[in-house]
């Protein structure tokens, strides 16, 4: 066990590099964090007032909801979503979500970019269902 100091040194260097983003932001560049993004609602979205579910739920759980939609739609053929108020919607990313939120760049992308996630929805689903461009 005469390599102890090397092992400890190696571990320290590893941990240092591993936590680099944390202490870099905290110590070297405090207060420069990017501000949380503001999403833009289209007129249609504003007029609707509420999404298929309450806004708070949508903010935190829209991905789970979409996952459930695609699972049920594809695998069980149940493509109509009924929300707690009893309102019905087609369980469709392209035809329901993007119908209101037709401004993907200002609505979807802003937050996704901010939290650095790259969902591959758009590899297949077209982002302008109304064909406006």
């Amino acid at each position: 066990m005469n390599d102890k100091k090397w092992i400890v040194l190696g571990l320290v260097i590893f941990l240092g590099l591993f936590t680099f983003p944390l202490w870099y932001n905290l110590l070297v560049r405090p207060g420069t964090a990017a501000p949380a993004p503001e999403v833009v609602l289209t007129d249609k979205a504003k007029a609707a007032r509420q999404c298929v579910m309450p806004t708070e739920f949508m903010k935190t759980d829209h991905m789970q909801l979409l996952d459930e939609w695609r699972l049920k739609m594809v695998r069980e053929g149940t493509g109509t979503f009924v929300n707690p108020e009893g309102k019905m919607f087609a369980a469709s990313l392209s035809n329901t979500c993007l119908d209101c939120h037709s401004n993907k760049a200002e609505f979807c992308d802003r937050c996704h970019d901010y939290v650095s996630v790259a969902p591959y929805c758009w590899d297949c689903h077209l982002d302008n269902p109304k064909g406006e461009r």
């Binding site: 939609w69 739609m73 149940t78 493509g79 109509t80 979503f81 009924v82 707690p84 087609a90």
Partner: peptide, 11 residues
């Protein structure tokens, strides 16, 4: 349990 998915009325 508050929301559900079902076949549409026109399906």
């Amino acid at each position: 349990g508050t929301h559900s998915l079902q076949k549409g009325p026109k399906a």
